[in-house]
C-alpha cells in the first residue's frame, strides 16, 4: 500500500484539501484530527455508523435472556410462597429483563466500537504521527507509487506543512 501522508496545522486547509482530493479522485483517503469533528466525518466518511445495529441486537438478546432466565429458573425451583400471585410473575421479571436489555445493549455497543474502530484499523494499518493527538491534522491519500510525487505536490499546494511518501 503506497500513498502520501500530509500534515496540516489549520482545520480549514484540511477540509478544503479533502474536498478537492475527492473532486480530483486522487484515491481512497483518511483524515486525522485531535478532536471529534462532524464536518470532517461528513466529508471523509459520510453515512451512519453500523454500531447501532449491534446495540439493537444486544438489547434484544438481553431482553430475551432476562425473560428466559427468570421464567426458566422459577419453573426449575417452584417456590410456592408467592402470596397468591402467579408463580411466573411477569412484572418483577420485567425488571430483570430491562436491566439485561441495557447491559447487553451496552456490551453490544462497545463490541461494535471495538470491531469497527479498533479491529478494522489493525487489519488495515494506516500511517500515524503523534502530533495528531496534540493539535495537528492529517490527510492520508492512498495512491499508486508512481503518483506519489504528484499527490505530495497537491497536499503542499493545499497548505500541508509536511508530508511523507510511503
Amino acid at each position: 500500500m503506497s500513498g502520501v501522508l500530509g500534515i496540516f496545522e489549520q482545520r480549514e486547509d484540511l477540509l478544503k484539501a479533502v474536498k478537492e482530493a475527492q473532486t480530483e479522485n486522487l484515491g481512497p483517503l483518511e483524515a486525522f484530527s485531535p478532536a471529534l469533528d462532524e464536518d470532517l466525518i461528513e466529508a471523509v466518511s459520510p453515512g451512519k455508523s453500523p454500531v447501532r445495529r449491534l446495540t439493537l441486537l444486544g438489547g434484544i438478546t438481553g431482553g430475551i435472556c432476562g425473560m428466559a432466565l427468570t421464567i426458566w429458573t422459577t419453573a426449575q425451583w417452584p417456590l410456592l410462597i408467592t402470596g397468591g400471585k402467579p408463580l411466573i410473575s411477569i412484572p418483577p421479571f420485567l425488571i430483570i429483563a430491562f436491566e439485561l436489555t441495557i447491559l447487553f445493549g451496552a456490551l453490544g455497543t462497545v463490541s461494535g466500537f471495538l470491531y469497527w474502530s479498533i479491529w478494522a484499523r489493525h487489519r488495515r494499518p494506516l500511517p500515524y504521527d503523534t502530533r495528531f493527538s496534540q493539535g495537528h491534522f492529517g490527510l492520508w491519500i492512498e495512491c499508486p507509487s508512481v503518483d506519489t510525487e504528484q499527490v505530495a505536490e497537491f497536499l503542499k499546494e493545499r497548505g500541508a506543512t509536511e508530508w511523507e511518501i510511503r
Partner: peptide
C-alpha cells in the same frame, strides 16, 4: 487500543458514545 484519531474511528466513537448515553439515561 491504538487510537489514531482517524475520521472513521471518530465516527464510530461518536455513534457509540451517543448510544451509550441513550442506554445510560433510562
Amino acid at each position: 487500543l491504538g487510537w489514531s484519531g482517524s475520521t472513521r474511528e471518530w465516527k464510530h466513537f461518536n455513534s457509540s458514545y451517543l448510544l451509550m448515553a441513550a442506554l445510560a439515561t433510562p
